[in-house]
Simulated assay, not measured.
Amino acid sequence: MDILALISRLIDYPTEELVNAKADVVGFIESDEHLTADDKAGLLNFVEQRFSMDLLDWQSDYDAMFERGRTLSLLLFEHIHGESRDRGQAMIDLIAQYKAAGLDIGLRELPDYIPLFLEFVSTQGAANARGWLQDVAHILALLKVRLEKRDSEYAALFSALVNLAQADIDYADLAEQVKGEKRDDTKEAIDKVWEEEMVKFGPDANSDACGTAVNKPSPAQRRDQDVPIQFIDAIVADTVAKENVSAVTVSGGN
């Protein structure tokens, strides 16, 4: 599903290169065969609104939305494991699955960064891609509802992803869930988090910085139909774990 690669780029940090490609982006959305009419309209509205902004204003708004607080984190495991130790093992498991599909990512790239995840999924064929999206559909839907609560055009991107997954989501339940959530991106909320978290020192102190989807799978890495859909494997063979632990350092925080 090539449309996933485009949505990945739209979710990633906005750049001048992206803005300059507006005509191509619009054309790609309009010609896609997987999107519903409503999702096409939502994505086109996103492009029109965001690409018309001053780039620095867009980038500033992006930072304020996704880089402060955790409710809108673009790291999948932040919403599943939080700060638990299970997050590290989940990272290792996902990296192993990327490698099984022929994709190697940089040591400083977090495998659960949504744009990177979507880049990978876009190379796995329509059937497998849908299965991978279904595995994380509840997270994508939660982000959609939270973004809608903030009246953000970014909600359309996550709405399209949930629909591409063909997932059955109870949006009314999610809306009720986030109804009472307090903003965690205010100065007061951020200061409180800094006070509560343990200070980290050493070479891995910054290893949890959010990665970017810059290493795209090449055509040679495509394995359209032979990758089993296993988002989080409960049991990983010792050989796989040892192989990846030696190559990857995973931080427990965001």
Score class of each variant (00 low, 15 high):
H81M: 10
R85Q: 12
S84D: 12
A96G: 15
L103E: 01
R85Y: 10
A100W: 00
E83H: 09
G88W: 00
Q97C: 05
D104E: 15
G82E: 11
A101P: 01
I95A: 04
I95C: 04
G102S: 09
K99A: 13
R87P: 00
Q89C: 02
A101M: 06
R87T: 02
D86I: 01
Y98T: 03
I92V: 15
I105Y: 00
Q89A: 12
G88K: 08
R108Y: 13
A100M: 13
E78N: 12
G102Y: 04
Q97K: 14
D104W: 05
R87H: 06
A96M: 07
I105W: 00
Q89T: 08
M91K: 00
A90P: 02
I95E: 01
Q97H: 15
R85M: 09
H81I: 03
E83V: 13
G88F: 02
A90K: 04
G106L: 14
D93Q: 11
H79W: 11
L103P: 00
I105R: 03
D86F: 13
M91D: 02
L94R: 00
F77E: 07
I95Q: 02
Q97E: 13
Y98D: 06
G88L: 11
Y98P: 02
L103Y: 05
D104A: 11
D93E: 14
S84N: 09
L107H: 12
I92A: 05
R108H: 14
A100N: 11
E78T: 14
I92N: 06
D104S: 13
Q97M: 12
H79M: 10
G102K: 09
K99V: 09
K99M: 07
Q97Y: 04
R87E: 07
G88Y: 03
K99Q: 12
A100K: 15
A101W: 02
I105D: 02
D93F: 01
G106Q: 14
I80N: 06
G88E: 10
D104Y: 08
I105F: 01
I95P: 00
H79Q: 09
I105K: 04
G88H: 02
L103I: 13
G102Q: 08
L107D: 11
D104P: 02
G106N: 13
Q89K: 11
R87K: 14
G82V: 09
H81L: 09
L103R: 05
Q97S: 13
R108C: 06
I105N: 04
L94K: 00
G102D: 05
G88T: 07
R108D: 14
E83Y: 15
G82C: 10
A90R: 01
R85H: 10
D93G: 15
R87G: 03
E78S: 12
S84T: 15
E83M: 13
K99L: 11
R85W: 08
H79R: 08
M91G: 01
A101N: 06
D93A: 15
F77A: 03
D86A: 14
D93S: 15
S84F: 08
R85K: 13
A96I: 05
I95H: 00
I95K: 07
L103N: 02
G102C: 07
L107A: 14
Q97T: 11
S84V: 06
E83P: 01
A90M: 06
G82Q: 10
I105H: 01
I105M: 08
L107W: 06
Y98H: 06
L103T: 05
